[in-house]
């Protein structure tokens, strides 16, 4: 009835129309989303972790940075592994994550020229109040993990290549537990963010390793409480890197670097230290600490 050629013509015409419409929306994109934060056209994209986002740190410091420099910061929060990949692909100008080994790999690959330590917080082992592994109130995270494994107490793992996940895997290693061998139904790898992991742990009375910031800001605690804290091995360092323009020429070098510089400046460090929930400081600036 209809020649395929005419069909093609119509398809092409429709596609062109759609392209036009899309281009149209592209030009009018920013205004409609005009919250105070999106008003400016000068912006950088930062890929960061769920912990910085979910804890509310960015909500506190980004307005301060924007007020100072006029640069809007658009944060895409993902697991650390994913956040670094976003930087690798050139989809972010700055990466701000917490997994030193992975960050150093990123550096070595040439995706950034330098890494700056910014701050730290610590991990805490969260568990149900009933404490089936009998570890509540102890300070030795390694011993606690061993107890959990021996008693097959339920444990929720992020399993998403995030900084927290890397830290958890490193701790199992220190404890001498080969997960591939010992992993059973007690070990629940959920492949999701920190908040989801806490929700899951709460739902099934499991232990879970969390960064303290997310835990303090977390609202659906239910039966969960801190089981183990204070071990030096639970130390959680954040680093920031501007993506190397040699790899991705389009990255906003100077604005990105401005953000990095501000974070490690006295002003930025002070802003980080001032962020508190319920009177508790969540992140401890340490940009000047050598080797952090």
């Amino acid at each position: 009835m209809i020649a395929p050629r005419r069909l093609l013509l119509i398809a092409g015409f429709s596609a062109a129309l759609a392209g036009l419409a899309l281009a149209q929306t592209a030009t009018v994109a920013p205004p409609a989303a005009s919250t105070p934060a999106a008003a400016g056209t000068r912006f950088i994209t930062v890929s960061s972790t769920t912990s910085t986002q979910d804890s509310g740190l960015f909500g506190h410091i980004l307005p301060l940075f924007q007020a100072r420099t006029g640069i809007e910061v658009r944060v895409v929060s993902q697991g650390t592994g994913q956040a670094l990949d976003t930087g690798r692909r050139g989809d972010a100008d700055v990466v701000f994550v917490h997994a030193k080994a992975q960050e150093e790999k990123f550096l070595a690959e040439g995706f950034a020229l330098e890494r700056k330590p910014v701050m730290y917080n610590d991990f805490v082992l969260i568990g149900p109040k009933s404490d089936p592994a009998g570890v509540a109130g102890t300070k030795d995270i390694v011993a606690a993990l061993k107890a959990i494994q021996e008693k097959s107490a339920p444990f929720v793992s992020r399993g998403d290549k995030s900084g927290t996940h890397s830290a958890e895997l490193a701790l199992w290693k220190i404890a001498g537990i080969d997960l591939d061998q010992k992993k059973g139904s007690w070990y629940r790898d959920i492949g999701q963010g920190m908040g989801a992991a806490l929700n899951t742990a709460g739902g099934m009375g499991a232990y879970v390793l969390s960064d303290r910031g997310t835990w303090i800001a977390f609202k659906n605690r239910g039966d969960l409480t801190i089981a183990v804290e204070g071990d030096r091995r639970l130390f959680n360092q954040y680093g920031v890197m501007a993506v190397n323009p040699a790899k991705h020429p389009h990255v906003k070098v100077s604005d990105g670097q401005a953000f990095v510089n501000w974070l490690i400046s006295p002003e930025g460090q002070k802003a980080i230290a001032e962020y508190k929930i319920d009177g508790q400081q969540l992140f401890f600036p340490n940009a000047t600490q050598a080797g952090a």
Partner: peptide, 24 residues
């Protein structure tokens, strides 16, 4: 979209975020 606050955050991604933060 990346769920960027004030720029690409929609109702559904906010719901996801709030769920992950436990603010059910």
């Amino acid at each position: 979209g990346g769920n960027i606050a004030g720029y690409t955050r929609t109702m559904t991604t906010t719901i996801t975020l709030e769920t992950s933060k436990g603010d059910l």
